[in-house]
Simulated scan of single mutants.
Amino acid sequence: MAFVLFESGDHRCVAFNDLVRGDDGVQANQFLIQNGRHSAVLDPGGALVYNPLMLALAAYVKPNEVDLVLCSHQDPDIIGAVDKWLLYTQATVVCSKLWGRFVPHVVPGYMKNSGADRYLLLPDEGGLIPVGNAVIRAVPAHFLHSVGNFGFYDPQAKILFSGDVGASLIPSGASYGFVQDFATHVPKMEGFHRRYMGSNRVLRLWVDMVRKLDPQMIVPQHGLPFRGEAIGQFLNWLERLECGIDLLGPADFRV
């Protein structure tokens, strides 16, 4: 089922939240940004969701006419089906320059039209990515799960697609919608963030950057999105969270 996050004029942002079958894999969201006849798919996932995503996209765009595949990082639930995107579309794959030589390892060597010209590799500071008459800004999220990690900010919709930052673990089949009660939502995020985020120092740098962006929505790749007062509550929670290397000590490295 598609969830329209934003629609105004010829600009639209859509989330697909229920394409993973039951407990076959970790729940993951895929996204579509459309501007006129141009479009980008964000974090499209692996073979598990490729066919369902193609069917879901067809209500909005011809999948083989997608212009861009935006990848926040290198995990299978992000780029696992990149070979199919390169084979069946003319889309350009956008990812960190750190992963530009790793992503081709999931692309068969015999495949034609899958070389370096099909990739747009982002420097660490990010950059601007045109989608029709709109521009998507790749913003750094390094060491917040991956060493070469980006969020994608749509300034027209004022949505930050935040990748794994803000991810929550929700049951398969749970309804998709904005977080209503932040306090009860925290347990769905806390364990993941403590383990997968690099350190509190990096979280505070990211929070400062996001406050300057001032998004109206923060939409992670797993679980539920934030808007309104939940955004401030989420950022306040993140900047106080100990995680990653903050929690490690000698006991974690015993033989």
Rank of each mutant, 00 (worst) to 15 (best):
A56T: 13
L55R: 08
G151W: 00
P220G: 12
F253D: 11
Q90L: 00
A183W: 14
I129D: 15
P225M: 09
G132W: 04
A138H: 04
F16V: 05
L235H: 15
V69F: 12
V179R: 04
V93S: 04
P215F: 10
A157Q: 07
G151C: 14
A81H: 08
L87F: 07
V139L: 07
A40M: 00
G25C: 05
E242T: 03
G163Y: 04
D43P: 06
S175K: 02
D208P: 01
L224V: 02
R254Y: 10
F102R: 15
D83V: 12
D117K: 07
E125L: 03
P123S: 07
Y196L: 08
Q74Y: 15
D117P: 01
P171V: 08
G127E: 09
T184P: 00
A141I: 14
C95K: 04
A174V: 02
G191P: 00
A59W: 02
G36A: 10
C71N: 01
G244K: 02
Q90P: 00
A157L: 03
A116Y: 00
M54A: 08
H222Q: 10
G115W: 05
R137D: 06
G80K: 00
G177I: 14
D214L: 14
P220T: 03
A2K: 07
D67M: 12
V61Y: 01
D181C: 04
V94C: 13
A81Q: 04
I170A: 02
R118G: 00
P171Y: 02
S199G: 01
N236E: 15
R254T: 11
L19M: 06
N35R: 07
M1G: 11
P108S: 12
G244T: 02
A157T: 02
H38Q: 03
T92H: 11
D208T: 15
G191T: 13
L5K: 08
G36P: 06
H185F: 10
D23I: 00
M111H: 10
L42E: 02
A58C: 09
P44I: 13
K212I: 12
P187W: 06
H193E: 07
H193W: 14
P155G: 05
A141L: 12
Q216R: 10
W206N: 01
L87I: 09
M1F: 02
P155Q: 08
P123M: 05
G115V: 03
E242Y: 09
V69E: 06
Y88N: 13
F6V: 00
